[in-house]
Write a protein that binds this DNA or RNA. Sequence first.
DNA 1: GATGAATCACCCTTATGGGGTGACATTTTT
DNA 2: AAAAATGTCACCCCATAAGGGTGATTCATC
Lengths: 208, 208
Amino acid sequence: MGRDIRIVIIEDDEIIREGYALLIGQSDGYTVVRSYASFDDAVKTIGDDSPDVILLDIELPGTNGIQAIPKLKKMLPHAYILILTVYESEKTIFDALANGASGYLTKNTAPSKIVESIREVKDGGGPMSVNIARMVIKSFQRNQESPLSKRETQILEQIADGKSRSQVAKDLFIDLETVRSHIKNIYLKLDVNSRADAIKTAKENKLI
Amino acid sequence: MGRDIRIVIIEDDEIIREGYALLIGQSDGYTVVRSYASFDDAVKTIGDDSPDVILLDIELPGTNGIQAIPKLKKMLPHAYILILTVYESEKTIFDALANGASGYLTKNTAPSKIVESIREVKDGGGPMSVNIARMVIKSFQRNQESPLSKRETQILEQIADGKSRSQVAKDLFIDLETVRSHIKNIYLKLDVNSRADAIKTAKENKLI
DNA sequence: GATGAATCACCCTTATGGGGTGACATTTTT
DNA sequence: AAAAATGTCACCCCATAAGGGTGATTCATC
């Protein structure tokens, strides 16, 4: 076996912080190097902790968890960041993942699952709480009852990729006028009259 | 306790199919209603099976798993579809999820985890194999070393939303000429000379 | 004190976008 | 069998948008 997984905890609630430290520290193969009450607090010395995994809360005094992620990634490019929070809003979750978090757990997660997730993220996995995983998967899903036909959807996708009518026409081997015709129908169906509005409406309704 | 979870299996390899049926059928609270060797085979009678969860393979004779998903969703809107396959290519995974799959397991998944995932998907979760979850999370992550400045990224995002220069200018409360200037810099940095190419390059490199 | 970022200005030409209206053949649905 | 939708193309119109070139200013940050 290799050496212990080195863990740093950033969490403002002392009770929770110490609880996690104890829980994880007791587990075989895990070492809690240090724990901090905020990112602003951690920033000075976390570079010396060389953690493998950082357990990060979102609601923190000063720099919040979301803002902290890219800064931590810059300081410790090889550390995995695992979010541990009560926040379950879509925006928070997607912002955290976009910023570089490698996993997202809610605080009702069972202790054994937390410990397991630390190993999992270290091994290249992407641990998520059940409800988070559901939201993540849902974000991929298209609307099954689109008002647009397949061809219209395909053309709107290309429009959303920034292509001009003539580019779309070339790529689909159809006439420029045909593309125009499709776009007009798309506008009619979506009740819009510009590319920007069509893309906006389509994305809001998961048509593309 | 409620009634058993009703499961249908669609899998072309007989050994595997029977293996799953046996494994799941033995578990308390689970009933394997029926199993099929292909979607084309299932399509005639699956409507009568009223499954809660459909275990679906990707590589199938005739209609493949990806194509089958929307058809199954149309026939059985309330059934959850759980993919169980050896395929791990990004495109396959994202296509499956976009088409309406609620979970994605690879075939090396431990039997106990499969049984657990069926319950999880039924309870509104989004079960994924460890490596799948990692790919899904990675798809959200932005490139941390973007050549673009924050403002440039912001403007390129709006361009990718189909907005014209003047719309962007209005929305950001800056002059049309300033937007132009930013776009020119974006084109320079990305080495492109059109909106479409800028968006393409930016998406490929996860800059937006 | 140099570099990058963000702001704005004015030159130029061609391509693009959107509105309107209609036709015709092929699917799909009813 | 009839009706509806889909996919294809045509020609009218005009205002605006896109992209290339070049340069300047202010403000941070390093």
